[in-house]
Design a protein around this nucleic acid. Sequence first.
DNA 1: ACTGAAAACCAAGATTT
DNA 2: AAATCTTGGTTTTCAGT
Lengths: 174, 174
Amino acid sequence: MPNLRIPLRFQLLTARISSVSTKRISAALDDTSKAIIEQLQRDGRRSYAEIGKAVGLSEAAVRQRVQKLTDAGVMQIVAVTDPMRLGFSRQAMLGIRVSGDTRIVADLLAEMSEISYVVLSAGSFDIIAEVVCEDDDGLIELLNEKIRGIEGVSSTESFLYLQLTKQKYDWGTR
Amino acid sequence: MPNLRIPLRFQLLTARISSVSTKRISAALDDTSKAIIEQLQRDGRRSYAEIGKAVGLSEAAVRQRVQKLTDAGVMQIVAVTDPMRLGFSRQAMLGIRVSGDTRIVADLLAEMSEISYVVLSAGSFDIIAEVVCEDDDGLIELLNEKIRGIEGVSSTESFLYLQLTKQKYDWGTR
DNA sequence: ACTGAAAACCAAGATTT
DNA sequence: AAATCTTGGTTTTCAGT
C-alpha cells in the first residue's frame, strides 16, 4: 500500500513507480484516452456512461481504459482541497542554501505540515520549498523556530506570494 | 461556466469565488467532513455508500456533504496526470525579475503550455514560475526563445529539479 | 451485449440545533 | 425554523460473463 498521506504527484512518482516499473508512456496516449482524461479533469466523478457518450465508446470500454490509465500511474482521480478556502492565506516559496547533505534537510522539511512542496534543485538554492501558513505570524514562526534551526541550513530566502496566476496538472492532454 | 483549461486551485481561486462569494470556511470543517475528504483524497471515485460506512453516515448524507463541499469550493474531485509518466522529465523553477507591470508578464507566461505554475511574488524575484519540459533542449528553447524575449523580463534564474521530495494538496484535513 | 448486484438519485419524513 | 440525517422506492451504473 502506498503512503497516502501525500496524495498527488509525489505518490505517483514514488509509490507507484515501484510497482509498475519505470515504463514510460511518453506522449503515446491516443486521442480517445486523452478525451477520457479531459472529461475526468473536469469532473472526477462523471459516470462512465456519460464519458462514453462524449468520447464515442461504450461504458465498459471507458471503464477499462480508466482502469488501465490509473493502474499505469498516468492518471489519478483524487480530491484536492483549496488552502485559501480553509484559512491558509499566507503562502511563500523558500529558497534554501544548505551545507552538507541536502537530502537530509529536505526530509526534515518534508515532515513539516506547513510545507507543501520540497524539491532538491541545482542552482543558487539547494532546496526549494513551498510553505502554506494561516498568517504572517505562522510563517515567521515556521521560519525562525523550525527551518532556520535545522542543522545544515545556512541561509533562506523567502518569496511571499502576492497572487497565484496559474496552476495546472493536466500534462499530456493539451 | 468556469474556464476549465486550468483545472485545480487556479479555478478554485477565480471562477468559483465569483459565484460563491468570498466566505471563508476557515478550519471550520467538522470531523465528519474531514473524514469524507480524506476518503476521497485516497480515491476520488470511492462510492458514497462505502464512504458512509467508513465515516458512520448514510449514503445520501455523504452525497449531500460532498455536494456542499464542492459547491463551496473547498474541495474538487479531479483527474491529475503525472508529467514524468508522460515524458516530461525536465522540470525547473524559474525566478524572474521584471521591469514594469509584473501582471502582464505573468499573464504571458501563463499562456505558455510548458509552464505549470505562475505566482507573483515579493522578494528578490517578481515572478516565480514552474516549467515542465520533455528534455533539456525544450527547456533551453523555452527560456531563450520565449521567456527571455518577453518585453519587461530583465533577468531569469533557473533552478533545475533534481528530485521531488514532497508534494501535497490536502490542506485542512491533517 | 446481457445480467445480477450495487450504487446513485430523489422525495419526504424524522431529528437535531 | 433551518439545517442535517435517514429511509424507502426507483433508476442508473457497475463488473463479470
